[in-house]
Nucleic acid binder design. Structure first.
Lengths: 230, 230
DNA sequence: GAATTAATCAAGTAATCTATTGATTACTGT
DNA sequence: ACAGTAATCAATAGATTACTTGATTAATTC
């Protein structure tokens, strides 16, 4: 009977979908994907930032590659991993959305760690876009410089949070600032706002990060060269 | 140092996200979610359709409930499971999208099973909406009656594929038909189109299914009562 | 209240997954 | 060719997961 063939088809079909799901079943791999959403990176560099062993990181990356979620290029000794498709980034965001909607524990955890975020007066992406068009506002990219170089919000300047303290003189008191970073659960922008406010600047944080901004189709600069608006 | 606390936070944060991912790592559970996207169902009914044991189905459903992806209500002896949030449906679709973009194997599998689908002249959702507004077209819901009852494309009539053969007289020859079903990988609509064309009707299939139509915000009837447009 | 039925629980086994360790490969620069 | 480094491979132990079987719980019907 054809029902058997149909069962077999469904098994294989959902088997393929589950392969994607399996790849998203590890906290480490999800964290790797989030980092790769900022820029391509080497195995070593990821292992360093995540505090994982090189071999372990390599294995996770291979799992991601087998599921075709990431691609690689080799340059000299280094293998650079990157997201294979913007849809992968969307998928990660989709998981986050479900977690936010459904897991009360997430909200508790975030409140516990970030405390009351209202001091940073978080603003949304639409709001920032409007603000940037109508008023003078300085947008600060608080991520590491390589991530800024790989792509950033149009008009933003790179002020990695580590350098903010000693580069304060570049940021006049009479301006308004909005800081952003990797995403809603990244602390860079919060720290930056804290420092800026302590030093008498009017500063807020963008609720979302660069990947969300790009996914929304808002204006970005891509690539190392500045001035190339896409 | 605060870095430890921050590592712990990240571990817990991505642990939560991974809990969603883990739940999506099983082909069975993905299939269950797809069925629940059509309507709420009992454990027994799902077990029957999926060909799983009752206990096994119950365990999968509990995994889904623990991850807060589904909710339940009890009615008499039966426990009805339903999707907890439209975002869950979006998430499943997101997985499918990535699989379609990235897994060449998927395309091969689908072609192998469906053969050349062009005979069914699949049309997209926008196209159908336009068609329904400008021309006379009969939209056929080929899913089981309960799924139609739980929600269907506005204006569609229920003709479960099993009943199509003997209800042909209700479908005049001089009309144009578009059949839809559960989703792009469901065969109901394909079978319906085959039968209709064999019997001299002009028929095509909607590429997507009801969940996609609803998610797109297109007009639907929800609930058992017909005539309630939302 | 006894029988029936839907669903869950509990325990066990086989299979799979994660991270570690040490060895190996691939490429660079001398 | 050789040393040095990035990455991968291979083997392993420990934890987790999927499914089965048989017992138990909860609601209904007689």
């Amino acid at each position: 009977m054809a029902a058997d063939a149909h069962r077999a088809f469904k098994d294989r079909l959902y088997g393929l979908f589950a392969r994607i799901g399996q790849t998203l079943a590890s906290p480490r791999r999800l964290e790797i994907l989030e980092l790769l959403a900022q820029r391509e990176r080497t195995v070593e560099s990821l292992a360093g930032e995540l505090g994982l062993s090189l071999a372990n990181t390599s294995q996770h990356l291979q799992a991601l590659r087998q599921a075709a979620l990431v691609e690689t290029r080799k340059e000299g000794l280094y293998v650079y991993y990157r997201l294979a498709d913007p849809a992968v980034s969307d998928l990660c965001r989709s998981i986050r959305t479900v977690a936010e909607h459904r897991l009360a524990e997430l909200e508790r955890l975030v409140r516990e760690h970030f405390g009351d975020r209202s001091a940073a007066e978080p603003i949304g992406m639409d709001e920032l876009l409007k603000l940037a068009r109508t008023k003078d506002v300085t947008i600060l990219d608080t991520r590491p410089p390589q991530e800024y170089a790989a792509g950033h919000i149009a008009g933003a300047i790179s002020v990695p949070v580590d350098e903010l303290q000693r580069r304060l003189r570049e940021l006049p008191r009479d301006r308004e600032y909005v800081a952003y970073c990797r995403g809603p659960y990244c602390v860079y922008a919060d720290r930056a706002v804290e420092i800026l406010q302590a030093k008498g600047r009017r500063a807020r944080r963008l609720l979302e990060g660069f990947p969300e901004w790009r996914a929304a189709g808002f204006p970005v600069y891509i690539g190392a060269e500045q001035g190339v608006l896409r």
